[in-house]
Amino acid sequence: MTRKATKVTNDIRTLRFMNGEMTQAQLAEAIGVTRQTVIAIEQGRYSPTLEVAFRIAKVFDVPLERVFQYAG
C-alpha cells in the first residue's frame, strides 16, 4: 500500500494509458524529470512544481484540472 503524502490527487496513470500506453519513462523524458519522480507523483508521494504540472498537462493536451485534483 502506498502512503499518500499529499492531498493532491492525479489521473496521470489513466492519462498515460489513454495516450498510447505511454510509459513512465517516456513521460519523464517529455517533462524533464526522472522516472522515479513520475512514479512519486503518480503515487501521491510528491507534489510537482506548477511548471512541471503544466508540462504534464501539455504532454496529454488536457487542462491542468484534468490531470490534478485537490482533495483538501
Binding site: D11, R13, T14, M22
Partner: peptide
Amino acid sequence: MLYIWGMSKFDYI
C-alpha cells in the same frame, strides 16, 4: 477516477 483493466502491463511494479 477512471479505472481501466490491464493497466499493470505498462506500470512498473
